[in-house]
C-alpha cells in the first residue's frame, strides 16, 4: 500500500511541476521577448517568431538609445534616469521618516485629539490618488515642471502610516517602558529603541513606496512637459511613439527602465514577497 501511495505522490508532484513549468514559461515569455529584443536588430524584433530567436545579438540598440537621447531637444538618458532615481529616493526616505513618526505618535503616545485625527487618516486611506490628481494639478500649476512637484504629494501616505501604526501596536511595550525609566523621551525612544526593532515594516514600506514611485506615470504626465524634469516611465511613452518606430531601441530603453528594479528584486526578493504579503494586514 505504501508503494502505491508513493507512486501516487510522485505522480501528483510530477503533475504539479508540469503545470508550474507551463505557467512559468507563459509568464516569462514577455520578459524574455523584451530582453532578447533589446539585443537584436530592430528589423527582427517585430517579425513573428524571429523576434524570439536569440540570433544576431549585440549591444547596438543600447548605444543607439544613448545616442538618440543626448541633446537638449530630446533630453538626455542619464537625466531621465537621474530624475527618476532622485524622485524615488526622496519619496522613499522622506516617506519612511514622516509616516513612521506619525505611526508611532498614533500607536504609542497618548495625546489630545489623537483618536479623532486617526479617524481622519483612516478615511484618507480610501481616497485614491487618482481621484485627486486632476484638482491637485490645478492647485499646483505654479510648481509645474519641477522635480519637487513630483515628490511632495507622495511623501505623506495614509496607508504607510497605517502599516507603521499596526506594526508598532504589536511591538512589546516593555522595552520602551524601560527606556522611559532611563529618561529617554518620546523622540529618543523612537529613534534608539523602536526603529532598530522595526526593520521589517521599514523594509515593507520602502519596497512598496519604491515600486509605485518608480513606475509613476499619471502624475508626471499631468504636471510636466519639460524633458529636463521628465522621469523615465514617461519618457518610455514618448520614446516608443517616435516615428519611425525602432523597436530594438524601444526594448533597450525598456530594459534600462526595469533593470534597476529587477536587480534589486532578485537580490532582495525575500523582502519583496514578505512586503506584499505584509501589506495585506486587514483593517
Amino acid at each position: 500500500m505504501s508503494a502505491n501511495n508513493r507512486a501516487r505522490r510522485t505522480a501528483a508532484a510530477f503533475q504539479n511541476y508540469a503545470v508550474l513549468i507551463v505557467a512559468a514559461l507563459l509568464m516569462f515569455a514577455p520578459i524574455y521577448y523584451l530582453l532578447i529584443g533589446s539585443l537584436k536588430p530592430s528589423s527582427e524584433v517585430l517579425n513573428g517568431f524571429a523576434g524570439f530567436l536569440p540570433t544576431d545579438l549585440s549591444l547596438d540598440n543600447y548605444v543607439a538609445v544613448f545616442r538618440a537621447l543626448s541633446s537638449d531637444a530630446s533630453g538626455y538618458f542619464w537625466q531621465f534616469m537621474a530624475n527618476s532615481l532622485l524622485i524615488s529616493i526622496v519619496v522613499v526616505v522622506g516617506g519612511l521618516l514622516v509616516n513612521s513618526l506619525a505611526g508611532y505618535a498614533f500607536s504609542r503616545l497618548e495625546w489630545v485629539g489623537r483618536d479623532k485625527v486617526f479617524i481622519l487618516i483612516i478615511l484618507l486611506v480610501i481616497v485614491p490618488f487618482e481621484s485627486v490628481a486632476i484638482p491637485l494639478m490645478a492647485l499646483m500649476q505654479g510648481q509645474r515642471d519641477t522635480l519637487l512637484v513630483q515628490m511632495l504629494p507622495f511623501i505623506a501616505n495614509a496607508f504607510s502610516v497605517f502599516l507603521f501604526y499596526t506594526f508598532f501596536l504589536n511591538l512589546p511595550k516593555s522595552v520602551e517602558e524601560a527606556a522611559h525609566l532611563d529618561g529617554l523621551g518620546a523622540w529618543g525612544t523612537f529613534f534608539r529603541i523602536v526603529v532598530p526593532n522595526a526593520k521589517p515594516v521599514f523594509a515593507t514600506v520602502a519596497i512598496l513606496t519604491f515600486l509605485s514611485s518608480w513606475g509613476q506615470y499619471l502624475w508626471p504626465s499631468l504636471v510636466t512637459s519639460d524633458p529636463a524634469v521628465r522621469p523615465l516611465p514617461l519618457e518610455m511613452g514618448v520614446f516608443s511613439d517616435r516615428e519611425p518606430a525602432d523597436w530594438g531601441q524601444v526594448f533597450a530603453f525598456g530594459t534600462l527602465l526595469v533593470l534597476p528594479v529587477l536587480v534589486v528584486f532578485l537580490i532582495f526578493q525575500r523582502y519583496f514577497v514578505q512586503s506584499v504579503a505584509g501589506s495585506a494586514v486587514k483593517g
Binding site: A24, P30, I31, L211, W214, G254, L257, V258
Partner: peptide, 22 residues
Amino acid sequence: FRTFFFMPVVFPMALVAVIWRL
C-alpha cells in the same frame, strides 16, 4: 517558481504596455 510569477509585478505599466503592444 514564485520568483517567476512575481517578476512582472516590478514592471512599470508604461513598459508593460509597450511590450504587449508588440
